[in-house]
């Protein structure tokens, strides 16, 4: 286990380093000088030179990369070009919306997918199964921003039950939660469809195993065997997907946050990209990539803990 842990940690560090290099290099080749965006086209040359110097843009490339990397490790992401405030603070502020939104979407999608997948597997080939698999096919095909628009048209504009967009801030928890319901629902639908399909096929596979036959032979009903034995084993692939989905939901909200005018991480990234606030883009994208890599590291580790077979190198 110690050897496995060491190898996995080394490969984690290597992935993170490689990701940081790719992101830094990509941002370097982006055309469009942030300084000319900040000062406008008609700025005096010496003002431009002074600002470039102040932002450290005249330092050698390698030095700037190391500086950025050291900053990331200390939690100092630099100062945003457009907001003129620390990037770390900006990201933390936006995460206060995006993380609960992603969490809410995850809860909704699990709440939809778990019973749907169970029913479909339990009644395989029957009407309920066909209904669930059919709905899941459609759910995967629906673009979430269009679904969001339809939700707004019905729940916000026609029935006036929920707000159509905007975010009042967590100072008003009730109103804040109400503002997140429709965006979370829009994000949850495709995820729920994917999750229900994965759960269904994992359950069907588990039901074909010997331990289920043993459970049935000792007198357990089909339903009891399904919920007590098959479900637990089928949860492994489902948990993997859930772990990955949380980090992707943080980023996947980029378009949904634009539909609902929510000041979240996705909208911050989107605006930073269009305004060439590259230091924000760099750090925010790095954060998302770190989230994906670390989540997959933790899931790998958790599985190796419960299942020694997985400790052997692939």
């Amino acid at each position: 286990m110690a050897r496995f842990l060491l190898l996995r940690t080394l490969s984690l560090a290597a992935s993170l380093l490689a990701a940081s290099l790719v992101i830094f290099a990509a941002i370097e080749v982006v055309p469009g000088d942030p300084v000319s965006y900040m000062l406008g086209m008609n700025a005096a040359p010496d003002t431009v030179a002074a600002l470039r110097d102040q932002l450290g843009l005249n330092e050698p490339l390698v030095w700037r990369y190391l500086h950025w990397l050291a900053g990331l490790l200390r939690g100092d992401f630099g100062i945003s070009y457009t907001y003129k405030t620390p990037v770390a603070g900006l990201i933390a502020e936006r995460l206060a919306l995006s993380a609960p939104l992603a969490g809410l979407a995850l809860i909704l999608s699990t709440a939809l997918a778990l019973p749907a997948g169970l029913i479909a597997a339990a009644r395989r080939g029957k009407g309920a199964d066909l209904a669930v698999t059919g709905l899941a096919q459609i759910g995967i095909a629906v673009p979430n921003f269009w679904f969001a628009m339809m939700l707004v048209a019905l729940f916000a504009l026609r029935w006036q039950l929920l707000p159509a967009g905007g975010f009042p801030g967590w100072a008003h928890p009730g109103a804040a939660l109400r503002a997140l319901i429709l965006p979370a629902l829009a994000l949850a639908l495709p995820q729920a469809a994917i999750l229900a399909r994965i759960l269904r096929s994992a359950l069907i596979e588990a039901m074909a195993q010997d331990y289920i036959r043993t459970a049935r032979a000792k007198g357990l009903s089909r339903r009891a065997a399904l919920t007590r034995h098959a479900l637990r084993n089928a949860l492994i692939p489902v948990l993997t997907v859930l772990g990955m989905q949380f980090s992707f939901l943080l980023a996947g909200a980029i378009i949904i946050e634009n539909v609902f005018y929510l000041p979240g991480l996705g909208r911050l990234i989107f605006q930073a990209i269009t305004q060439r606030d590259l230091i924000v883009v760099e750090s925010a994208v790095m954060l998302l990539v770190v989230a994906v890599i670390v989540v997959s590291f933790v899931t790998d580790l958790a599985y190796a803990l419960v299942d020694p077979r997985l400790r052997r190198p692939a």
Partner: peptide
């Protein structure tokens, strides 16, 4: 490495 990047954000 490519799979770790959020596809939509990177595409944008």
């Amino acid at each position: 490495l490519i799979f770790a990047f959020p596809a939509l954000v990177t595409a944008i």
